[in-house]
C-alpha cells in the first residue's frame, strides 16, 4: 500500500536519513521502532510531505507522491498525527474534528460568504459525533482542545486523522506519556479500527504496546532501515540489539 525506497534527507550537514526503505501492507498495523536519532520522525515527515525528501521515492497506492505538499498527501488518504499532540488551542474538540472533514464546500471563500456548505457541515457533525463516541471523547466535545488531558489529546489526534477518511494513518507515538491502562485502551482502539479495514504505521517506544499491536515491525538505526519482521524476530536479532544497546568495542 505504501512503499518508500531509498529515502534520504539531511539538515544542515547532519544526514538524518541516508537510505531508508519501508513497506506497509494493507490491513496491517506496521510498527516503526529504533533508538533515538534513528530518523523515525524525519521518515514520518518525509512520508507525510511536511519535509520533502532529498532522495528516494514514496509510492502510495501505486501513485508516486514523492515531494507532494502535505495537504495533497492528506487528501490522497495518507494522514498523520504528531508526536506532541499539536492541537489547535482556539478550536473546540468538535471543531478540530470538523476541520479534518473532507469535501466541505464552505471552505471556499465565495461559498463561505454565500453561507453554503451547511448541509455538508451537518453531515460532518454527525460523523464527528460518531468518531468522538468511538474514542470516548463525547463528554469533552465542546471543550477547548487545550483543556483536555494528555490521554484525551492523544485520542483526539487519532480522531482527527479518522475524520479525513484516511486509508493509511501514520501515528507518531500514540501512547507516549500516557498511563499504562490508557495506553492499552488506546492500543485496543487502534486494533479495532484496523479490524474495520484501516491500515496504520505506528512509531512507538513502548515495547509492550508494539508487541501487542504491531505486525510486522520495521527497525531503523542511523538513518537507514535495519530490518523488517515480526516482533519476535526483531527482538531476537543481534543487529537490533546492537543498535539499541551499542556494540562492544573489540
Amino acid at each position: 500500500m505504501l512503499v518508500a525506497t531509498g529515502i534520504a534527507r539531511g539538515f544542515y550537514g547532519v544526514q538524518a536519513l541516508t537510505a531508508a526503505d519501508l513497506t506497509v501492507e494493507r490491513g496491517t498495523v506496521t510498527g516503526l521502532i529504533g533508538p533515538n536519532g534513528a530518523g523515525k520522525t524525519t521518515m514520518f515527515n518525509c512520508l507525510s510531505g511536511v519535509v520533502p525528501p532529498e532522495g528516494g521515492t514514496v509510492t502510495f497506492e501505486g501513485v508516486d507522491v514523492t515531494g507532494w505538499r502535505p495537504e495533497a498527501i492528506a487528501q490522497a488518504g495518507l494522514v498523520r498525527t504528531f508526536q506532541i499532540a499539536r492541537g489547535f488551542p482556539s478550536l473546540t474538540v468538535l471543531e478540530s474534528l470538523l476541520l479534518h472533514g473532507d469535501r466541505q464546500p464552505g471552505e471556499g471563500l465565495g461559498a463561505a460568504l454565500l453561507g453554503r456548505g451547511r448541509a455538508r457541515e451537518r453531515a460532518l457533525v454527525a460523523r464527528a459525533e460518531g468518531v468522538a463516541e468511538r474514542l470516548n471523547l463525547t463528554p469533552v466535545l465542546h471543550a477547548m482542545s487545550t483543556e483536555l488531558s494528555g490521554g484525551q489529546k492523544k485520542l483526539l489526534e487519532i480522531g482527527r486523522a479518522l475524520m479525513g477518511r484516511p486509508r493509511l494513518v501514520l501515528l507518531d507515538e500514540p501512547v507516549a506519556g500516557v498511563n499504562p491502562t490508557l495506553a492499552i485502551e488506546i492500543a485496543d482502539r487502534i486494533a479495532a479500527l484496523r479490524a474495520d479495514g484501516l491500515t496504520f504505521l505506528v512509531v512507538e517506544h513502548d515495547m509492550e504496546i508494539v508487541k501487542r499491536l504491531c505486525d510486522p515491525v520495521v527497525v531503523m538505526a542511523g538513518g537507514a532501515t535495519l530490518m523488517q519482521g515480526s516482533f519476535a524476530d526483531v527482538v531476537s536479532d543481534p543487529r537490533v540489539q546492537a543498535a539499541y544497546l551499542g556494540t562492544r568495542v573489540a
Binding site: 507525510s48 510531505g49 511536511v50 505538499r69 502535505p70 495537504e71 492528506a74 487528501q75 494522514v79 498523520r80 504528531f82 499539536r86 492541537g87 489547535f88 488551542p89 482556539s90 478550536l91 471543531e95 478540530s96 476541520l99 479534518h100 473532507d102 471552505e107 482527527r160 479525513g164
Partner: peptide, 16 residues
C-alpha cells in the same frame, strides 16, 4: 483559526 494556531498541522489536515 486553525492555521493561525499551527499552519503545519492545518496543512496535514488537508488544507492548502
Amino acid at each position: 483559526r486553525a492555521l493561525r494556531d499551527d499552519d503545519v498541522a492545518a496543512a496535514v489536515a488537508g488544507k492548502s
